[in-house]
Amino acid sequence: MSIDKSLLTGSTTTLILKLLEEKDMYGYEMIDTLAKKSDHTFDLKAGTLYPLLHTLEKKGMVSSYEETSVNDRTRKYYHLTKDGQGLLAQKQQEWMAYSATVNKILNGGLAYGTP
């Protein structure tokens, strides 16, 4: 099922922060990991990801460093900072409240899972 892109836009930051909570990653690794974990619901383009990463870095939510691999390819890795961990926690709480409310409305005003 195809998902409206406007629904995806608001959650992209949260998803990227969540990936970086698991481990440091370079950009295309994030794109690939997110696509695989979401069964390709989230197929980000580099033109979407990199501006977001640069904004998060300017705000101190992520930091970056370069590392050279065994094949002499230098990659820029991103790391979730302590401030980024706080933002992720906040975004996760927001998402839980938002999705619970949407599910409640879709369920006719009853809490999700209520018979």
Score class of each variant (00 low, 15 high):
31 I>M: 14
36 K>T: 01
16 I>Y: 02
15 L>S: 02
36 K>C: 06
11 S>R: 12
9 T>Y: 00
36 K>D: 11
11 S>A: 03
8 L>E: 09
8 L>I: 11
37 K>N: 02
22 E>R: 03
22 E>A: 02
21 E>I: 01
23 K>C: 06
19 L>K: 08
16 I>A: 01
29 E>I: 02
35 A>Q: 09
9 T>K: 15
37 K>C: 12
12 T>W: 03
29 E>K: 15
26 Y>S: 04
10 G>H: 05
30 M>W: 02
32 D>K: 15
24 D>P: 12
39 D>R: 07
19 L>Y: 11
34 L>A: 12
6 S>F: 14
35 A>H: 10
14 T>W: 06
7 L>C: 08
21 E>L: 08
30 M>P: 05
34 L>W: 00
14 T>C: 00
19 L>M: 15
39 D>N: 07
28 Y>N: 14
27 G>K: 13
18 K>S: 14
39 D>A: 11
18 K>L: 12
11 S>D: 06
21 E>H: 08
21 E>Y: 06
25 M>S: 06
30 M>L: 15
25 M>E: 06
37 K>S: 13
24 D>Y: 06
19 L>F: 10
7 L>H: 12
19 L>V: 04
27 G>S: 00
6 S>T: 13
31 I>R: 08
33 T>P: 03
32 D>F: 03
34 L>F: 05
38 S>G: 04
12 T>E: 09
12 T>N: 11
41 T>R: 15
6 S>P: 00
20 L>S: 06
33 T>F: 04
38 S>H: 08
24 D>E: 14
21 E>V: 00
37 K>W: 09
35 A>S: 10
11 S>K: 10
18 K>M: 11
16 I>H: 05
6 S>C: 08
39 D>K: 05
26 Y>T: 03
27 G>D: 03
10 G>D: 04
32 D>T: 07
7 L>G: 09
12 T>A: 15
24 D>I: 02
39 D>T: 03
14 T>F: 08
8 L>F: 06
38 S>I: 00
7 L>R: 15
22 E>Y: 02
29 E>L: 07
6 S>N: 13
33 T>H: 06
11 S>P: 05
39 D>F: 00
29 E>D: 07
21 E>D: 08
13 T>H: 02
24 D>T: 07
41 T>Y: 11
26 Y>K: 12
31 I>N: 02
10 G>W: 01
10 G>V: 11
21 E>S: 09
34 L>H: 02
32 D>P: 01
7 L>T: 07
25 M>I: 03
35 A>D: 01
36 K>I: 04
20 L>R: 09
14 T>D: 10
16 I>L: 12
14 T>S: 12
21 E>C: 05
35 A>P: 05
9 T>G: 09
16 I>E: 01
41 T>A: 09
14 T>M: 11
15 L>M: 10
12 T>Y: 12
8 L>R: 05
9 T>H: 04
36 K>S: 05
26 Y>G: 00
7 L>S: 10
7 L>K: 13
38 S>K: 05
32 D>V: 13
28 Y>Q: 10
34 L>G: 02
30 M>S: 11
33 T>G: 04
29 E>Y: 11
11 S>F: 10
26 Y>F: 15
29 E>P: 12
29 E>F: 08
27 G>R: 09
37 K>T: 01
22 E>K: 13
32 D>I: 14
34 L>E: 01
40 H>D: 06
21 E>Q: 07
32 D>C: 04
10 G>C: 09
33 T>S: 14
38 S>R: 10
41 T>F: 12
40 H>F: 14
